[in-house]
Design a protein around this nucleic acid. Structure first.
Lengths: 330, 330
DNA sequence: CCGACGCGAGCAATCGTTTTCTCGGACGCT
DNA sequence: AGCGTCCGAGAAAACGATTGCTCGCGTCGG
């Protein structure tokens, strides 16, 4: 691959001049600049990124570490980040932690090594990663979940309040034994949604019960098993608050298998507004989260911090809103 | 951030020894190696990626350029790629071309500059990008769509055959006026699916008609409009072959708005097996593509090529299979 | 007419690694 | 005992860009 000196000798100038010409930096004789440009074009010259990054001690790359590329909520965030980053001339690296602390740590390590300009992270909650980040000065923005043990810019959704509202909505529709199916213990969003559910039960003066709460991974299969076991127990719930859209798929499958109709037999509200929720009969009530905005905002915060514009860390909490549809009305 | 010389002086050795110790390279005195390791640990040393890449003239990073991170088909591919890449010690950079040749070109440019080890590309079809790649020796694997004008390793799905099968299936179910709703002209997958549809119509001895074919972006909104216009025209279709799952959402919305029931009133088969298709009433018939396998295979091909194991370029065509459900039976 | 100033271009240092080469010491063989 | 060999570690040269510094030349003002 052609290097800057190849271009320089072909244009009959020094490498310094090539660099300046190509970066439109200092004043360069227009005629020389033209020669340089022509030579670069003919050779198909692309500056060597690593060399440039090494010298400039910075890269125009952001890393976004999320737990699941197949989760539409996270891909919507990714799109928000990407649009803003791209606008500002940054590229985006997407990494999959699978919610595994080890993989997360590994990717943070890679990001640190590659000296990315900044990291957007949806933390698994492992203090290990947080500690790793704390020891280095790379700017970080936590997304969707707070970073444990370290102050950082953070963009969250008010999951607790949203879960409370959803629960109260179900109660208001006359459901009396509302169950909650949430994500793994320790995952802040899962815990917050559970806490909000409990807030709602208390506010609605409904009796809580351990048998009305189940946890599983944020996936369809686990949710299906959990829903099935819950619905076939003594004293089953007559409504369910479900942790995300993938889990909703599992829950709805379980309901279908038991010949229970959403809404009429069992009220259902799920987090995440997936495009297909309106196609169901009855359509699924959801808690819509502003995923794109989360990403866009987080990216802006990160870019600001990279530019050194701000000192104080901030935490922004966006609100989610309930979209009541047929699955939560009798 | 600590550099290798910081580690060296703290351990009382030369940078060369640190490098060797940390990379487990040549024989290093165990006692020295231990000192180095300890020093590196204490300083929280991470090797500088750009410097290393510059020196080694290689990076352990693959780039995957797809047209839409929000399309589950592509994210499933991404997951396949990621699993294989990660296994082999490579990281994955995901980029969104939005099916825009300009953005695609830009990302290829970035990938080339950063000297990634290889590129996986789902080409928009722009000859521009192909030409750019052709001038550089970075290994490339085309995914889901062929790379125009240049021989390269390619992993495809037999869209044409799958579309033909789906069309014949609809014909076999007694639908006589089968329509086709596919993606933009010029996108090979869209064109292949249309060609397969025509093959099927011919094989079923059904009359084709321009009024039975519509194109839109591979998104819900465009598909909804197209489906609506098609279904409200004189002589509307009694069945539809739909280009992907996002478009299926639009089509089903259009059907609902017109009070037409899938299966009974209008047969529907859509490409992409989304998890929610079984939840519908009736469940949606789909053409399931082996997305994960495409990604995994493509990644393996790319890694082989990076390792220089193969000379000949290869094209692998995987087959998709029809999953007939209620939406395509009366 | 001469000196100062400015502008444009080249020289060379620099970024942090890896890796080749070299060198010194220890060991073994004759 | 002397010489050759081998092994381990350091010195130094890359890798390819950017950039501070210097230098030469042209112009303008005194």
């Amino acid at each position: 691959m052609a290097t800057i000196s190849d271009v320089a000798s072909r244009a009959g100038v020094s490498t310094a001049t090539v660099s300046r010409a190509l970066n439109g930096k200092a004043t360069v004789d227009p005629e020389l600049a033209a020669r340089v440009l022509a030579a670069a074009e003919e050779l198909g010259y692309r500056p060597n990124g690593p060399a440039r990054n090494l010298r400039k001690q910075e890269t125009a790359v952001l890393a976004l570490i999320i737990s699941d590329v197949e989760n539409p909520f996270f891909t919507a965030i990714a799109r928000g980040v990407e649009d803003v980053a791209h606008e500002a001339g940054y590229s985006l690296v997407l990494c999959n932690s699978d919610d595994a602390p080890a993989k997360e740590r590994e990717y943070v390590d890679v990001a640190l090594q590659e000296r990315v300009a900044g990291v957007l992270l949806s933390p698994t909650g492992s203090p290990d990663t947080a500690e790793l980040l704390a020891r280095h000065s790379t700017p970080v923005v936590a997304v969707d979940r707070p970073l444990p043990g370290r102050a950082s810019d953070t963009v969250l959704v008010d999951n607790r309040l949203a879960a409370k509202h959803a629960t109260l909505h179900l109660a208001g529709q006359g459901y009396g034994r509302i169950g909650c199916l949430t994500g793994p213990s320790g995952v802040p969003t899962a815990d917050d949604r559970l806490a909000g559910y409990r807030d709602g039960m208390r506010a609605a003066k409904l009796p809580g019960s351990a048998s009305l709460v189940r946890r599983s991974r944020f996936k369809a299969d686990g949710a299906q098993r959990a829903a099935h076991s819950m619905l076939t127990q003594d004293d089953p719930p007559d409504a369910l608050l479900v942790g995300n859209s993938a889990m909703a798929v599992g829950v709805l499958e379980a309901l279908a298998a038991l010949h229970l109709k959403p809404g009429r037999d069992v009220g259902v509200v799920a987090f995440d507004d997936a495009p297909w929720t309106t196609l169901l009969d009855p359509p699924l009530s959801v808690v819509a989260q502003p995923a794109y905005d989360i990403g866009a905002l987080a990216a802006r915060l990160l870019l600001d911090r990279i530019a050194g514009d701000r000192a104080e860390t901030s935490t922004t909490t966006l609100s989610a809103h309930l979209v009541a549809r047929g699955s939560s009305t009798r």
